Simulated assay, not measured.
Amino acid sequence: MIVNLPGTTTSKVSKKIMAMREEGGVVTLGRVLTLVVLTRVGFEEENIEAANLASREHPCRIIVLSEGSSAEATRLDAQIRVGGDAGASEVIILRGYGELATQSESLVSALLLPDAPIVAWWPHGVPDKASTTSIGRIAHRRITDSANEPDPRAALEHISATYAGGDTDLAWTRLTHWRIQLAAVLDQVDPEPVTAVTVEGAADSPSTFLLAAWLYCALGAPIRVVDDPAGTGIRRVVLERDGGNVELVRPGTVEAFLTQPGQPEQRISLPRRTLQDCLAEELRRLDPDEVFGEVITDGLARLLEHEGAAGV
């Protein structure tokens, strides 16, 4: 069911949801959080689809704030989606114009689920400082996506400089399976030090750079980042050791091959992760991701210093 409410107020939207609940049996029981999506005109449906799919694991109320034009007369247009049009969630789309064009807490405060955690997600447009924005100040977790920025590496460095506990970035979430595989390998091989590391991935992939920062932070070995063509994601990691190298290579987008001393080559399922998979993973935890915090600040700073010293 989809209900359009042009020229409305958040109070009227809230009352309409209550009326729909009473008339049609639409309920919010079992909603575990409120997901506030701060997006741009033209990207709403893509983000709503990902949030709806993620909501199958985390039933929630989804509030989408879409930037309208500040040059138009002040008004608020809204749309409510429930039932089959909203997955396991309720979706409320708000688009403000004029004085209401700025995305702020005042637009969502009347629509937040009571006593439920709040997660803010910026799928496009990393804010100046997520934790100090109007929505970021009330959110338990703040999710950005540096991969969607014009200069992903610069966006990553900006996130590093403005990091606060509770921040995360989907470029980090896309690394989960790579980190699991590499950590498992290091647990299995002889406790011999890694003498050098090579990370090869797409030049436009902030995940490549974050993986290098994680490995540099964890191993402290000299590291080299090799750029691949844009759009290819992470391709290869080589851990050099005196007793034999460990190499994890993903030539395509689904399967990877692991080579390590004294063992035959292994074929591993390592598909590129979908947006909804990454979002669902981030919604599983509401506490600060301490590993990400260490990597995005200390690990990234050390990697940049290492690159500068090496003349990269």
Rank of each mutant, 00 (worst) to 15 (best):
P150N: 09
Q188G: 03
D151A: 06
V199P: 03
G166W: 02
R137F: 00
G201L: 11
I180L: 08
T195I: 11
H140M: 14
A171Y: 01
A184C: 07
V185G: 05
L182D: 05
D167W: 01
I135M: 03
A147I: 06
R179A: 01
I135N: 02
H158S: 08
R141S: 07
D169L: 03
D190K: 09
T132K: 12
T132N: 06
S160I: 06
T132I: 13
A164S: 14
A161P: 04
V199M: 10
P152R: 03
A164W: 00
S134I: 11
I159K: 03
E157V: 13
A161Y: 06
A184G: 09
W172L: 02
V189I: 15
H177G: 04
I135V: 10
A196D: 05
E149G: 10
A164D: 10
D190E: 12
A155N: 06
L156R: 02
T176R: 12
D187Y: 13
D169A: 11
E192R: 08
I143K: 06
S146T: 14
I143S: 02
V194S: 05
E200A: 12
A183N: 14
Y163W: 15
D169W: 09
P150R: 08
R174C: 00
W172T: 00
A203N: 06
T168W: 00
L186Y: 07
E149Q: 07
V189F: 00
S146F: 00
G165R: 10
S131E: 11
E149R: 05
I135A: 09
P191Y: 06
W178Q: 13
T173D: 12
D145T: 10
I159S: 10
T195M: 11
T144Y: 02
L170I: 15
A164Q: 10
D151M: 15
S160G: 12
W178R: 14
L186W: 06
A171G: 14
W172D: 00
L156A: 03
R141H: 14
G165A: 13
A139R: 04
A161C: 04
V194W: 15
N148D: 01
L182F: 11
A196I: 02
T173M: 01
S134G: 00
P191R: 13
R137E: 03
T195G: 11
I138A: 14
G136M: 01
P193Y: 04
E200G: 11
A203M: 05
A154N: 11
A130F: 08
G136C: 13
A130D: 04
G136A: 05
T133V: 02
N148G: 05
E192G: 08
V197Y: 15
V185F: 03
S160N: 12
A203T: 06
Y163D: 07
S134W: 01
L156M: 04
H177S: 13
L182M: 00
